[in-house]
Design a protein around this nucleic acid. Structure first.
Lengths: 248, 248
DNA sequence: CATCGCTTGTGAAATCGTTCACAAAGTGGT
DNA sequence: ACCACTTTGTGAACGATTTCACAAGCGATG
């Protein structure tokens, strides 16, 4: 049984994945699922799954597995997905539009309750089922809504100012789509979503395993993953080292 | 000096962050930056920054710091951001629209070279500066483009099929926005972007530190972060344990 | 050119997260 | 009631990542 340990963030992230798999399984009429089934369904190892759950309690039956329905309810409670969560969206651009139209929020009880923008041309216009509000009314509007979560979908240049206003309006958790590092007080949680970061990681991996066409001296498909270049450079010692130059 | 170690994924992710900070700094006319400046600018510790770079070589000057320009060039080379990267986008919905209009791709030499959809009403229509292509022509079109990276922005139900077709078309890296676990051959890299996962993590943290209003017996603002509930439950042994029920 | 103040790069230590491996528990058959 | 089989929950081993701490390098100053 688990005692006073902090729950690792990766565990929390995986919990959302398990929930998705369980929801699909329930949809498919499966009443019970073993940890090996989970592994087969989402690629996360059975041991990892069991360990993850062990941070929160005991939910399975040896010899049987986990009740789909029951485990769904437990994970939803753990992640606070068992009640409506109103959210504020700031930024009524393309990304904002994609987010208000995102169907999966509803299934997890997240609801965008208000949209804000600073562009006076947009203010007052309909946006999905909402009306775009003036960013200046942020605090005022949230006094009614009482949202604790906000989504920042504005350009990087405006993001910090928006974050400050959100904190002022009582927001305690921010999902940030702007490519910038927000400074917030310690009681406010931030998670960044960075497409570019993800693409950069992919791009790096491509660089390691050159594709057939642009490769000239290499041999067939590499099977080892995530190896890296910078292989051969002499073992320079500290005393006789050469500084890397921009173009060697 | 670094030798045969694999580069940790977190290091790669941070590299993209450093690059952003460096670009801003160059914009601001800063010629040189120390690791402590980086820490101040993006919150990643100076030691972490230096260790991250050490996987790739030596780029700084003791007593001085790093040449902004030079380090930008080095990181761009490492991440393969020093050349145009054509990408395929599948899914011409709201999210797809946000992506083709995303201004930051250009700055990092990513370019969406073609858009695909399976909805015959959309096929042939303009989408940003592109024309929406029939998903059936994926392989054919990519024979011209030679993209290695693709973005999946379709509903979860279609994602696996799309992924299969992308692999067939020669794609080796996928940025997946669909909430589903893709199965791909080992030479294909996948990174998932899951809004819901991020929101779930935020939601969990909120649950841990209840807000002033919905709290009744607690005392003022907690300062320790990410503590967790499930505090007091008796130290049940294996032999005399009670299974968690859906509603205790 | 010796010294001071500051900064890098990096082994070693510490921390954090994942995987292993197995006792305890549940199920079904006889 | 017992046995064969399956699966859970979890310490302990392992592996990965972060942090520490410090010798060595550089620039400025007198």
């Amino acid at each position: 049984m688990m005692t006073e340990t902090r729950v690792p963030i990766p565990t929390l992230e995986r919990l959302a994945t398990y929930l998705r798999v369980l929801l699909d399984a329930r949809e498919a009429g499966l009443e019970t699922l073993s940890s090996r089934d989970i592994e087969r369904l989402c690629g996360i190892s059975a041991a990892q799954f069991r360990k993850d759950l062990s941070y929160f309690g005991e939910f399975g039956k040896p010899g049987v597995g986990y009740s789909t329905q029951q485990l769904i309810e437990c994970i939803e409670r753990i992640l606070r997905l068992d009640r409506e969560q109103p959210m504020l969206l700031v930024g009524a651009g393309n990304l904002g539009a994609a987010l208000v139209g995102y169907p999966n929020f509803r299934a997890h009880r997240f609801r965008i309750a208000a949209v804000f923008d600073n562009n006076f041309v947009k203010i007052g216009r309909p946006f999905g089922e909402l009306i775009i509000e003036d960013i200046a009314r942020l605090k005022e509007v949230n006094a009614q809504i009482g949202a604790q979560i906000a989504i920042i979908a504005v350009p990087a240049s405006a993001a910090q100012e928006v974050a400050d206003q959100l904190v002022e309006a009582g927001i305690r958790a921010i999902l940030n789509f702007a490519p910038t590092s927000l400074k917030v007080p310690p009681h406010v949680h931030v998670r960044n979503v960075s497409f570019l970061q993800e693409l950069a990681v992919l791009s790096y991996h491509l660089a390691q395993e050159p594709s057939p066409w642009e490769r000239d001296t290499e041999h067939a498909l590499a099977d080892g993953r995530v190896s890296n270049q910078r292989a051969a450079n002499g073992r320079r010692t500290r005393t006789a080292r050469k500084r890397a130059s921009a173009r060697p």
